[in-house]
Design a protein around this nucleic acid. Structure first.
Length: 673
RNA sequence: GCGCCCGUAGCUCAGCUGGAUAGAGCGCUUGCCUCCGGAGCAAGAGGCCGCAGGUUCGAAUCCUGCCGGGCGUACCA
């Protein structure tokens, strides 16, 4: 609704201005900073002023007087130093916003049908998920939901690095430290009394300590790594048992917060089905990599640094000291190690190529992994063509037109290397559409460390925050945080609802916990380091998920109580005339309705900016405006029937829009709180 | 050293492609239940937007240089 009108305004003004002043510049439309300034503002006269060498205010006045009428817009006036303030025809706008046609018209405008692949979560399957992984999953899942809400086809992929060092370390720990067989570990993983992911969390920290204390035990890692890569032997079997069981736990954890995946491509298949071999052949053929013969990288296949660094120091003429050979070698990126095994970057290059359908003749086989309660089916890659019945039924994964890689900012360097590989292979367009959707880490605040009883090293004590480290076992586990959120919410719900059963309270508490957690992760822009603090994460008041949920509950209550006492409400889309709207639509009501009507605009703006936090902000603004309305307008006590219908229809409309915003953020809308 | 990110109210953060009087939440102070549940509403105090230059009619926003802080720069991912 809002989007359509904004579009119409932009086009109309642009064509008039280009005809009158010959300016082809795109017309920028912004939200006025104060409501008195109208619904939209055009700052274009400032730009015109320069070209025309006239005062912006004068141009604005001229435009305001001469612009042709635009349907749905009541007035355009000059304001301030040269703004054009635009006011809508409120009655007509309200009527249109509430009509089912408005929503349908928005949905019909799907710009692009091409498939988008969003890769997120990507947790090493060797230990329990922690809060950093939650940020990744919430950002990724919200991105998926935003794009889907805008009508795009989106494939959610969760890449499983089941052949890397981290899994090798835990496999080695079971083998060498605990002397357990794959069968014994499988039994451990199946034991309902043992949280296997937590068990591995501790074991991973233990083996890392062991490496630090006795470096010679690092040979365990080497043995495990090569066993896993060849796929044979006890250590390889351990690796499989560990990673499969942990992946299952991760899916459980993520499902708790409403995160689902379409497909889990695994690194074992990148290797086993020779995706990597095919990619390596391409890289060699294009001379994107070469075999280093001297220096510290001797025996490795490397990619020279100038391919992925825009301005290497040696290439800059203003630098007096050019890069010497030693430095050049150390800046190169090793793709294949001297022992012949491939690094993560190499495997990721193969994966990215597959995502864009650039490995001819290569595809995974698939096996069904789990069916979500929502009905969505998750698949996992497999090398085994034997499961052919299911395999044949699997959707066509991969071959996307665009890929978002939700990966934390610390991996920017590796992402640059992967993109450089695409470019070197001649896939310039795909490289440009392989987007590193980066975000800063979640660290632990000093207070949080104190609360967890973590003893900090001397140098860490002075820091503003401490990095989470799986290797050190330092962090807050995702499930622990979710449990605490539920417990805290449960106490609150219990206090407020003596009428509800324990199970009902529990369900509401879970919804509140998810709302609190997801909103917490979304409030921050992607470039902000979150210094995690329990007090902040567990807050349910102010700008929090539960505040938004509470606004929805209040709207539901109004409508429910109305129905209980007065029967079915009228059809709001037809019950009121534009005149009726104009009679009752005061400034507050108008601002509320207007804010609600901007939800789709907010989604597309947040998607375009790649910043889910903007969406969170908008949803909060809507909830806040509604809370004010709730307090100020006693809907059920309203004696004037027509006025009551206006109020009710606004409540209905806000509820619908708020629910759709919550859904895009993956936040449940409880019936009661 | 080089690259990227951050520095805005006591604290935690917004501020969209430069635009109108710099915003929110928490905390603090003060009001508000004859109520559709207060996880709320209203009001108030609180800001050399790190510093210094520059570009511009106009800079929290763009450029340069400093000063703090973080991350990266692995044959880990």
């Amino acid at each position: 609704m809002f989007l359509a009108l904004e579009e119409r305004l932009r086009e109309s003004v642009a064509s008039y201005v280009s005809a009158k002043y010959g300016s082809g510049a795109p017309v920028v439309v912004e939200l006025p900073r104060r409501p008195e300034f109208g619904e939209l503002a055009l700052p274009l006269c400032f730009g015109l002023a320069k070209r025309l060498r006239r005062e912006p205010r004068k141009i604005a006045e001229e435009l305001a007087a001469n612009l042709p009428a635009i349907a749905g817009i009541r007035s355009i006036e000059a304001a301030g130093g040269g703004y054009l303030n635009v006011r809508f025809d409120r009655g007509a706008y309200a009527l249109a916003a509430l009509s089912p046609a408005a929503a349908a018209a928005d949905k019909a405008k799907i710009a692009d049908k091409a498939k988008i692949i969003v890769e997120h979560t990507n947790i090493n399957p060797n230990k329990a998920a922690h809060i950093g992984h939650l940020r990744n999953a919430v950002l990724g899942d919200t991105l998926v939901r935003m794009l889907r809400a805008l009508g795009r086809e989106v494939e959610a992929q969760n890449y499983i690095d089941n052949t890397g060092v981290q899994v090798a370390d835990v496999a080695a720990a079971f083998h060498f430290l605990e002397r357990r067989s794959p069968q014994a570990v499988a039994a451990l993983a199946a034991d309902p009394d043992i949280a296997f992911d937590r068990y591995c969390w501790d074991l991973y920290a233990a083996v890392s300590r062991r490496y630090a204390e006795r470096p010679q035990s690092l040979s365990w890692r080497t043995q495990a790594l090569s066993a896993i890569e060849s796929g044979t032997g006890e250590l390889a079997a351990l690796g499989r048992v560990v990673s499969d069981a942990i992946v299952d736990r991760h899916l459980d954890t993520m499902l708790r917060i409403g995160v689902e995946y379409d497909v889990l491509p695994r690194e074992s298949e990148i290797l086993g089905l020779e995706f990597w071999a095919a990619a390596f052949a391409l890289l060699k053929q294009r001379k994107a990599v070469y075999l280093e013969t001297a220096g510290k990288n001797a025996g490795c296949w490397v990619m020279p640094a100038e391919n992925f660094r825009d301005a290497p120091a040696g290439a800059r003429p203003d630098r007096e000291r050019p890069l010497d050979e030693e430095a050049a070698a150390s800046a190169s990126k090793v793709i294949v190690r001297s022992n012949g095994t491939v690094t993560y970057v190499g495997k990721d290059i193969a994966y990215q190529l597959w995502k864009f359908g650039l490995l001819p003749g290569k595809d995974f086989h698939y096996a069904p992994l789990r069916r979500y309660p929502s009905g969505r089916q998750a698949w996992v890659s497999t090398a085994d063509a034997g499961a052919s019945a299911a395999d044949a039924a699997a959707p066509a994964f991969g071959s996307g037109a665009e890929a978002y890689n939700v990966i934390d900012a610390r991996q920017a360097y590796l992402q640059d290397v992967v993109r450089a590989a695409l470019r070197l292979l001649g896939y310039e367009r795909q490289a440009a559409r392989s987007i590193h959707f980066s975000y800063e880490m979640v660290a632990l605040s000093p207070r949080c460390c104190a609360e967890l009883g973590i003893e900090l090293a001397e140098e860490d004590r002075k820091r503003p925050y401490v990095e989470v480290s799986g290797r050190k076992g330092l962090g807050v586990k995702a499930d622990d945080l979710i449990d605490r959120l539920i417990d805290t919410a449960y106490e609150e719900v219990r206090d407020r609802h003596e009428d509800l059963s324990e199970a009902a309270c529990r369900e509401i508490a879970e919804q509140i916990a998810v709302g609190a957690l997801r909103y917490f992760m979304l409030r921050f822009t992607r470039t902000t380091v979150i210094a995690f603090d329990f007090a902040e994460a567990l807050a349910f008041e102010g700008e929090t998920g539960p505040y938004l949920q509470y606004a929805a509950v209040r709207a539901k209550n109004i409508l429910r109580k109305f129905e209980e006492t007065a029967g079915a409400p009228p059809d709001f889309s037809t019950a009121l005339s534009p005149q009726a709207w104009s009679r009752h639509l005061d400034e507050n009501l108008w601002q509320l309705l207007l804010t609600a009507s901007r939800s789709r605009w907010a989604i597309s703006r947040a998607a375009a900016a790649g910043e889910p936090a903007q969406l969170a902000r908008h949803a909060f603004e809507l909830a806040r405006t509604f809370s004010n309305f709730y307090h100020q307008y006693p809907v059920l006590k309203e004696a004037d029937r027509e006025r009551q219908t206006v109020l009710l229809s606004i409540a209905r409309y806000v509820l619908d829009e708020l629910k759709s915003l919550l859904a895009v953020m993956g936040i449940p809308a409880p019936d009661a709180m």
